[in-house]
Simulated assay, not measured.
Amino acid sequence: MASRRQFLLGSTALAGSVLAGAWRPVASAPTAAGSFLPADFTVAVPDLAPERIVRRLVGLRPFRPMGVRLEAEAMGRTTLIHHYGHGGSGVTLSWGTARQAVDLALAAPGRGPVAVLGGGAVGLATAWLLRERGRPVRVYADRFSPDTTSDVAAARWFPSQLVDTGFRTPELEARLREALLFSHQRFRRLIGRGYGVAVLPHLRLGSQPPTPGWADALLADLIPPFQDVSDRGLPFRAAWAGAAPGMLIDMPLYLRAIQRDLRRLGVELVKRRFEAPGEIAVLPETVVVNCTGLGSAALFGDTDLAPIKGQLTMLPPDPLLRYTLSAGSLYLHPRSEGILLGGTYESGDDTTTFDAAAETRILEGFSELYALPGSAQG
C-alpha cells in the first residue's frame, strides 16, 4: 500500500513513465476506403452445444431517462460531483464523461486529495484523469475487479441504452459527442498495449441494410459506415451482411491493467461500502466524485435511476473467432476467457437471477443465424 506521503504527493517519475507509456499514440482509426474485410477473411462458427457453456453472467445497467448525471452538489464542507447513469454505455463513455466530471471536481474549492466512489470502469477512468491532472486520489468501493458490474459488460465500443428520446436536445448531443470523441481516443491509445483493447471486424446482419440511427449520427466521425459484404459467402442465414471496424474491450484484462497502473501512480484502492451520505461527508477528502452507478438510487435517493437487467452466456474461448456480431437483439463478442452470447434487456428488473428460457432463445437464435444442423429451416 502506498504511504501517506506517496498518496499526497505521488511519485513524479513514476507518474510520468506510467502515463506516458499507457497513452502512447497509435495509428489512426481504420477508414472506409477499400474493403475492410481482407480477401481471406473467414468466419469461425462457434460450437453452441449447451454442454459447452462455461459460465453465465448477469449485470444491471444504471439507466437514467435523461442520461448521465454530471452535477456538483454541496454537502456541508464537501463538494460532491455526481457522475453516474450511463445505461448500457458505461464502458463506452467512461473516459469522456470522466473528463467532464473531473473538470467539475477541479473547479471545486481546495487543492487537496479527491475521493472517487466506485471501482467500475467509470470510477477508474475518473481516478486516472484526476491523477493525470496532478491531484492525489483515493478510490473507495465495496467491489473491485473481478467483482464489479463492469466485469460483466460485453463492452463493444458503442453507445446504447443511454437516454430516452424525449430528453434528446442539441445541448445534450453536443456533450455526448464531445465525450464519445475523447473516450474513443483514449481507448484507441490502449490498443496492443496489454489492456485488452482491440479493433475487430464487426458484422451486422439483417433483412436489409440498417437505417442510420441517433447513435450513428453521434459517431459519424469515428466509425465508418457498414460495407455491404452480402456477396462474400459468409456462413449466415441473412439477406444482408455488413462489416465495419469496431473496438472491443476485454473487460477483465482491461480492469486489472487499469487497477495495476493506478496503484503504480500512488492511488489507493480502498474496499468500503457507504450506507448513507453522512458517511461520505466525514471523509478526509473534501471533493468527492460519485461513480456508484445504480448504487446512487439507494445512497442518494435518485428515483430516476432504473436497472436494465442483462445476461450473457459464455462458451470456451476460440482463438480463430476474431469478430463481433450483431443481429437484432443477438450479439456475440469474443474475449480472452470465452465467447459471450447475448443479449437481454429487462427494464426495471433489479434481480440477478439467470433466465434459462432466455438463454435457450439466444442459443436457438444463433443456431438459426449460422444455419447449423437441427436449427429451424436448417
Rank of each mutant, 00 (worst) to 15 (best):
R264C: 05
R264N: 08
L265V: 03
L265M: 12
G266Q: 05
G266T: 01
G266C: 07
G266P: 04
E268G: 13
E268R: 14
R272G: 14
R273F: 03
R273Q: 10
R273T: 14
R273P: 02
R273I: 04
R273K: 08
F274A: 11
F274G: 11
F274R: 03
E275P: 02
A276Q: 06
P277Y: 03
P277A: 12
P277F: 05
G278T: 04
G278D: 09
E279F: 01
E279P: 00
V282S: 13
L283A: 06
E285Y: 01
T286G: 02
V287E: 04
V289C: 05
V289T: 04
N290D: 15
N290L: 02
N290K: 00
T292Q: 09
T292I: 08
G293D: 14
G293W: 08
G295T: 03
A297F: 03
A297P: 04
A298T: 15
A298D: 15
A298E: 15
A298Y: 08
F300Y: 12
G301P: 10
G301E: 14
T303C: 13
T303E: 15
T303G: 15
L305P: 07
P307S: 13
I308E: 15
I308G: 12
K309I: 00
G310V: 02
G310K: 03
Q311C: 10
Q311H: 10
Q311G: 12
L312S: 14
L312Y: 10
L312E: 14
L312T: 13
T313L: 14
M314R: 04
M314A: 15
L315V: 06
L315Y: 08
P316S: 11
P317K: 09
D318R: 00
D318P: 04
D318V: 02
P319W: 03
P319D: 13
P319V: 00
L320S: 15
L320N: 12
L320I: 00
L321I: 05
R322K: 13
R322F: 12
R322Y: 12
Y323C: 12
Y323W: 07
T324H: 08
T324G: 15
L325F: 05
L325W: 06
L325C: 07
L325D: 05
L325V: 12
A327S: 14
G328H: 07
L330R: 05
Y331D: 15
Y331F: 13
L332T: 08
P334E: 08
R335K: 11
R335H: 13
S336V: 04
S336Y: 06
S336N: 12
E337S: 14
I339M: 11
I339L: 15
L340G: 14
L340Y: 11
G342H: 05
G342Y: 05
G343Y: 01
G343E: 09
Y345R: 11
E346M: 07
E346G: 01
E346N: 10
S347G: 09
S347F: 09
D349M: 06
D349T: 06
D349K: 03
D350I: 00
D350L: 06
D350S: 10
T351D: 07
T353S: 07
F354D: 01
F354I: 00
D355F: 00
D355S: 00
D355Y: 01
D355W: 01
A356D: 11
A357P: 00
A358T: 00
R361A: 12
I362P: 06
L363M: 09
L363S: 11
G365S: 09
G365K: 02
E368L: 13
E368N: 12
L369S: 04
L369A: 05
L369Q: 05
